[in-house]
Design a protein around this nucleic acid. Structure first.
Lengths: 231, 231
DNA sequence: GGAATAGTGTCTATTAGACATTATTCC
DNA sequence: GGAATAATGTCTAATAGACACTATTCC
């Protein structure tokens, strides 16, 4: 192989919903000499380890597990970005994924000395990101918002059991706009996306039926988007 | 960098519609000694050239141009596949794209001694493909079929000017099922996807209005899929 | 006029959206 | 009973699908 070969990394945009906001997990880069973007915040990621990672998805899952302990997220490939300039060390290409998980405490161990949830505002976060991660994150947010219009993705941002109101709230947080309750329920129940469990959520008011995903691995696609009106 | 780094390639699934079928462009691999999969058919692609390719998309466009001469196709990133075994030369990752172009004569020059259109049948072609290209091609076909339900992608498989009947036929070929004429026209015209040009297609019957894309760069997304009935 | 395809009109069924109403709990 | 949220019902507007019908060319 007489070829100069690009560097290969995997980065993961990990989302959840907490505190009434969409949150993304960022890690702080080491301040060691020679490291690019020392101290900056970045999406969890890094070089593919050809000894440990069987394939790209396994690599993404490993990075997610190292930061959150979550082993079975919703994981989707976002795309890849590669050019001569995005990494000061040379021509590099990253395989970007995005993951949706229920709110989870972060693992402080390992090399992830500093991992934190950041609320999403607009098409990014308020801190400057390393590499071209602002671009990756914007793409992840756009993909998520786009798919939420016609899929069940927000269900993966919630704990295993949830009420329809909580699900609707997750949709509204990601979309940034209110949805009509009746239409929302008809749609969700009609799609067979969830099934009721024999428990209710108690509160200072009428208890709410709890549901769980009928298929916790696969999202459901609706044949119509929400609010075609504004389209 | 003490890292063993994966090999990096770009592959492109190039589609068109001709002879009443969806066609994909394949190239025959060299039979030289040491080359993997000698003589097998494969998607056009190969190693990223860090000297010539500014970024991944430029690399994909270069490969498309080398085979077809087309410079401005509809080009979309399909995803990436990387693992330890897909290339006998070592851990490799490919960035896959898919392109839609109007029927075009192939360029016989260059290293593409043998490039041919193959009709798509089912989720692939009838010849055995090199590497994991059968998997890539199946993913490309699935993506195309899926998006055709709710986008204007088939318009990119036609020449610059076309009639609504020709556009409908392109949809039907990709989808593999008939569409209702009236609903189709209402939808296409209502979406403002095309605009009439001051010419008609003559034939042994009533001439048909010719249209062109209003925006030849960007696809249109419909808010509803075709035939939600069967969904 | 006949064949062939282009293009339009009418009707119905489905369903999202808006909004009102009823239901069930805690205090 | 009052507050709060859950859950359902009713009405309307939009539109896809089915299918019939009209229009325009060549022969």
């Amino acid at each position: 192989m007489a070829w100069k070969n690009p560097l290969t990394t995997v980065d993961v945009a990990i989302f959840t919903v907490a505190d009434e906001a969409l949150q993304v997990l960022l890690v702080q880069r080491a301040a060691a000499a020679g490291e690019p973007f020392p101290g900056d915040w970045a999406l969890p990621g890094g070089f593919v380890d050809v000894e440990r990672d069987a394939d790209l998805e396994a690599c993404a899952l490993r990075k997610l597990r190292e930061k959150t302990g979550v082993a079975t997220p919703y994981l989707e490939q976002l795309g890849s970005w590669g050019d001569a300039k995005r990494d000061p060390r040379g021509w590099s290409a990253t395989h970007a994924y995005f993951a949706l998980i229920a709110p989870a405490p972060l693992r402080a161990d390992g090399n992830a000395a500093d991992a934190r949830w950041f609320p999403v505002s607009g098409d990014g976060v308020r801190v400057k990101l390393a590499f071209d991660h602002a671009r990756l994150l914007a793409a992840a947010i756009a993909r998520l918002r786009g798919k939420v219009e016609y899929t069940s993705l927000p269900a993966f941002l919630l704990p295993k059991e949830f009420t329809l109101s909580e699900l609707q709230r997750a949709y509204e947080i990601v979309l940034g706009r209110a949805l009509e309750k009746s239409a929302f329920r008809t749609r969700v129940l009609g799609a067979g996306l969830v099934e009721p469990v024999a428990r209710t959520r108690q509160g200072p008011n009428r208890p709410a039926q709890l549901y769980r995903l009928r298929n916790p691995r696969k999202p459901v696609f609706f044949s119509r988007a929400f609010s075609p009106r504004d389209a």
